[in-house]
């Protein structure tokens, strides 16, 4: 019936088979569009091999990068968010939580691990951006609070890796109070003369920035991370003009004096080890 006839099959390789290249899976950089294997990216500390773009990663990846022998223990995994306010917007908060549990296999936007770095004990509280935008609710605050207690008890340093869109609106004022709670608890760590390192990663905004993320004895950031109080869109609407290039990036904050340094992910572990040695080796107890 058709007036043309295919003489031989044009594409004969099944899509399934096509994928089976030696490393199988490709990663295409969000920033420079360079394509490479995921294995290469993984070996490169989850950064683009071409442009060094720091890919957003989760807590377990950070723990593997940071701790000696990639050995650590997860703490406080039993804490779960609770819908005290019975918050409903387009859907009920418990539905959002269940979706987040199912899609991320995480238990909230914060994961705490403890291990050694260069032989020195370090508690790492790492935010999970995949879990409702890394938003800070009661569980995030409580895990930080418990991580601080744990660090004091075990005379360990504390690292908080921030990665958050801000407060979790579905927990409203409970979420707001986590700013006060975490900041107040950090004063206890300071009194115990234990160092607190704050690592801001992309993005660190809102109530997280306006509490623990800016309170480190050392404030550091990954290159290129967005760090700010108000989001760029809100600021743009307020001032009614375009924002300068590079506004609210890690490099911008560094120049304005809010960060001690910017750390490439490949140097993170070594940097933390050096700092812990400087702080803890000759720690003067009270």
């Amino acid at each position: 019936m058709s007036w043309f006839k295919r003489l031989k099959e044009g594409i004969s390789t099944a899509t399934k088979n096509k994928r089976e290249t030696p490393d199988g899976i490709w990663y295409r950089c969000k920033q420079c569009k360079h394509t490479t294997t995921t294995k290469e990216v993984q070996k490169n500390f989850y950064k683009c091999v071409n442009c060094d773009y720091h890919i957003r990663i989760g807590s377990e990846e950070y723990f593997d990068i940071i701790f000696d022998d990639q050995t650590y223990e997860i703490l406080f995994a039993e804490l779960r968010s609770k819908d005290t306010l019975q918050f409903v917007d387009l859907k009920p908060y418990p539905d959002r939580l269940n979706e987040a549990y199912n899609s991320t296999k995480l238990n909230d936007a914060m994961n705490v691990g403890v291990g050694n770095v260069h032989g020195y004990p370090l508690v790492v509280a790492c935010m999970e951006f995949k879990f409702i935008g890394g938003s800070m609710g009661s569980v995030v605050g409580e895990k930080i609070s418990k991580a601080i207690d744990f660090a004091i008890e075990n005379e360990a340093g504390l690292l908080i890796i921030s990665k958050s869109g801000g407060a979790r609106m579905m927990e409203a004022a409970f979420s707001l109070m986590q700013m006060a709670k975490t900041s107040a608890k950090l004063t206890l760590l300071a009194k115990a003369r234990l160092p607190y390192f704050s690592l801001c990663t992309d993005p660190t905004t809102g109530g997280v920035t306006a509490s623990y993320a800016m309170l480190g004895d050392i404030n550091m950031s990954e290159p290129g991370a967005l760090i700010g109080f108000a989001g760029p869109r809100v600021i743009k609407e307020t001032i009614k003009r375009d924002l300068p290039v590079g506004f609210q990036t890690a490099e911008f904050l560094f120049e304005k004096g809010f960060l001690d340094f910017i750390v490439n992910r490949k140097d993170l572990r070594h940097k933390l080890g050096t700092l812990l040695e400087l702080y803890l080796k000759n720690r003067v107890r009270q």
Binding site: I25, Y27, I55, G58, E61, K105, G134, G165, G166
Partner: peptide, 25 residues
């Protein structure tokens, strides 16, 4: 890890999507 789970499913991986449910002001 969830990283591997994510990449096991696709080629051009959008590993970690942006969340939009948090306050930023």
């Amino acid at each position: 890890t969830h990283y591997n789970e994510a990449i096991a499913q696709g080629q051009e991986v959008e590993l970690y999507e942006d969340g939009d449910l948090s306050e930023d002001d």
